[in-house]
Design a protein around this nucleic acid. Sequence first.
DNA 1: CGGAGGCTTGAGCCCTTTCAATGTCTGTGG
DNA 2: CCACAGACATTGAAAGGGCTCAAGCCTCCG
Lengths: 238, 238
Amino acid sequence: MPETVSIEGFWNSFAARNALDGAALDALLGLPTRRRKLGAGATVARGSPTPRNCSFLLSGFAQGSKLLRDGGRQIVSIYVPGDFLGLGHLIGASSIGEARMMTPGSVATIAKPALDEVIAAHPALQTALWRQTAVEASIFSEWLAGLGRRDAQSRIAHLLCEFAVRLRAVGLAHGGKFDLPMTQVQIADATGLTSVHVNRVLNGLRETGLVGTEKRSISIHDWRGLAAIADFDPAYLG
Amino acid sequence: MPETVSIEGFWNSFAARNALDGAALDALLGLPTRRRKLGAGATVARGSPTPRNCSFLLSGFAQGSKLLRDGGRQIVSIYVPGDFLGLGHLIGASSIGEARMMTPGSVATIAKPALDEVIAAHPALQTALWRQTAVEASIFSEWLAGLGRRDAQSRIAHLLCEFAVRLRAVGLAHGGKFDLPMTQVQIADATGLTSVHVNRVLNGLRETGLVGTEKRSISIHDWRGLAAIADFDPAYLG
DNA sequence: CGGAGGCTTGAGCCCTTTCAATGTCTGTGG
DNA sequence: CCACAGACATTGAAAGGGCTCAAGCCTCCG
């Protein structure tokens, strides 16, 4: 399992995105960090009134999901390498559900007290984390619009577009081609559909020539067309 | 339009919820604040890369919504008196959509520079705002589960339960009775349904004896039953 | 008193689900 | 190297929840 994002790389890009100064970056880089390899299905973070630590993803994919009483599952967020895992948990918003690995991968974990110290010393860092939480909320709201108002084809197309952009940002997509290690059941749980219907829609997209799907890997053949169907505008990812 | 929440009341309860010390509270109370009365439909906050101010609701209801290219609208959040309006905007997550009044009401607005000063002087305040943003995200994720995996009846029941709890928290609900100044079109836009279908489901809930609806006002007759249909657990509101 | 927005109701259709069966792939153990 | 289990993908047929279209009514407000 090669790590697609290194701990240093993670903090560097985090600092760059948020215009942190050198001192803050150094403090982050000096943080004691535990690295763990996890198998598919392993739980990474769970809602808790007293969060103990904060994790981010180095390789593999993870999901945040909610379970309904009737057994249904809704995937509310998908994490790719370079993402914080359930940042909301850190600040005590208990109920974003749990984060678990979708594929094997590895995560880095920082103890909350250590992070708190760095935050106290570098207030800009807290602003950055706050901002990151707001971006998470912004993604949620975009997904809300999708689940509420888009049909199956549009939702799936939107998911593919979002992936393409996010994976490109961490160098995991080349051209319009990237690995999508989600099963159709997982895609269904993310888009509020049935795996059966996901299958049919995906076939439709393939037949239309918009995308190609080869075993867990996607190539977008017609970005314009796909984005149009999806009503996709990447602004919310920033 | 009597103000259901005063500016002092707002900050007091904000401080209490977040365990802010007296000095921080005083600073907040001293903040220069502009008060505005707005009509239904007025825009309060819009996504912008350079946010200028921060608002919260004193009276009336507001909504955060996204417009889709095909003309569809999805309401992604509903604000009641005592809520920040589009907190995510403040920190620059541009794309939560826009916030606008659903009913006539009044809002308080603080200029961002003034707020920034207070934040700089009282770091705990930023933690509180961050936390608030995380709660917003938590509500989003609960709505996501609803739009993705619950049927129409359950979604509407959930909306009513959420309102009951949130309005009770600011003293706007008495027993299970509260004003719900949303039109059925707006309920439809919030739940991802059609106004026609909202009407039928609402009638169903009334016929079952779970709730009573008298012109823009709801009384929940059977909280247990409604919460069961809704699969409602108020934890996410905290 | 007229108009506009909101509510209600009916009929028919369609997208998506459900149910069920079959096909494919991968890893495992004999 | 083959047999087998289990997870995943695919396909068909039928049912249904929610939508669309359309009309009528009510209420509030200018």
